[in-house]
Design a protein around this nucleic acid. Structure first.
Lengths: 214, 214
DNA sequence: CCTACCGATCGGTAGG
DNA sequence: CCTACCGATCGGTAGG
């Protein structure tokens, strides 16, 4: 029988990831040294390198764990087969909960993916695309006309903007304030959706060309 | 008569600031070296230091120029004494225009202020507070009840979230797509504002406590 | 405005 | 021949 990892190995990895996410969120990926990560975990730098092969692997696992949870979240809501409005409300509530549960990880995901190596970055961006597309489908159900106008993704991204920007102004002190925000975001978005004028075809053509393709 | 600056001195400074904003926006402040800035401008590093005393000064001037324009913008709209709805529409249009005109500077402002030294950071954050408060006043005029509920600033920040997040998904290729987005953001926000349920006093108390105070 | 450097610290790894 | 580390230092490069 093969000898496994030492007991506590996985716990130690988890603890390192949590610490690194906090340090990266505060000082940025490039602005945080492996020495800082190590000493925040009470480890020597070689000990840290025992758990992660390099700095990129640390960043990748933070991003990957978080995006995997977001993908699982939208899949779960999809599986519930809710009507359009409760579906979008459920998505918003779950996103806000998830962000509140992982503020540091979320900030790292939104700010530091660009520092991953090319292939890992592509993997993460692919995951993000999956998540966005699932929400976009929910938006489109609520306003089918926006899709052919090329507006669906724009509206979806405005919704993500409201949620993703929250970590810059809401203190991460507790999940309660995030919980309070979820229905507000849902009310605002769902209430405003019907008021959005579909732009002229000339404008939406330009709009469609201006999405980031990657 | 004292010898003035060499002719072209100010032009060179401007060019450096534009180049630096682009490099900082792409690679982050910490991830960009002064050598990279210098060579992108066709200068030696010592030559670069002739125009800016250190890296912090470069970051400060990028942020300061941009935030000053935003403050001027809200002051101009304030001076027009518009009715609440056209006022907020004007603010949104002007913000989106300004962001489109200075995508790199805006990204640097939103992501890299934390790397400024303490005093400069405080100055910039103070400017940001001015801008937010002006928009918050416009929001409060449209929904006076949200103020005593502590909701005004939350709604204002959701609006900024929609606008500030745009640079992550709209290609910076042209001002036209941004122009198309401004009325969409305005429709969505103004349309949704009336649909937002005021949360219970218990929740808003928590909400008010969770703003970043600085 | 150049070449030539400094103190320090970077990410990563040697031997034991 | 595995794991779980340590003290010390590697080659390069950062801001200045």
């Amino acid at each position: 029988m093969a000898r496994g990892r030492a007991p506590g190995y996985d716990d130690q990895r988890e603890q390192i990831l949590t610490q690194a996410a906090e340090l990266f969120a505060r000082g940025g990926y490039v602005g945080t040294s492996m020495n800082e990560v190590a000493s925040a975990c009470g480890l020597s730098k070689p000990a840290l390198y025992h758990y992660f092969k390099d700095k990129n692997a640390l960043l990748l696992e933070i991003c990957n764990t978080h995006i995997s949870r977001l993908i699982a979240l939208v899949d779960e809501v999809d599986a519930q087969q809710l009507a359009p409005e409760p579906r979008l409300r459920a998505l918003i509530e779950r996103f806000v909960q998830e962000y509140a549960h992982a503020v540091n990880e979320h900030r790292v995901l939104t700010e530091d993916v660009r520092f991953l190596n090319e292939q890992d970055q592509a993997r993460i961006l692919n995951g993000e695309r999956q998540v966005v597309e699932s929400v976009a489908r929910a938006v489109e159900e609520l306003r089918p006309d926006t899709d052919k106008a090329g507006l669906t993704k724009a509206l979806t991204m405005l919704l993500f903007g409201m949620m993703n920007w929250m970590f810059t102004w809401l203190k991460p002190s507790g999940a309660l304030s995030y919980d309070t925000m979820a229905p507000i975001v849902a009310d605002l978005f769902l209430g405003g959706l019907g008021a959005v004028q579909t732009p002229s075809p000339k404008d939406t053509k330009k709009l469609a060309k201006n999405y980031l393709t990657s």
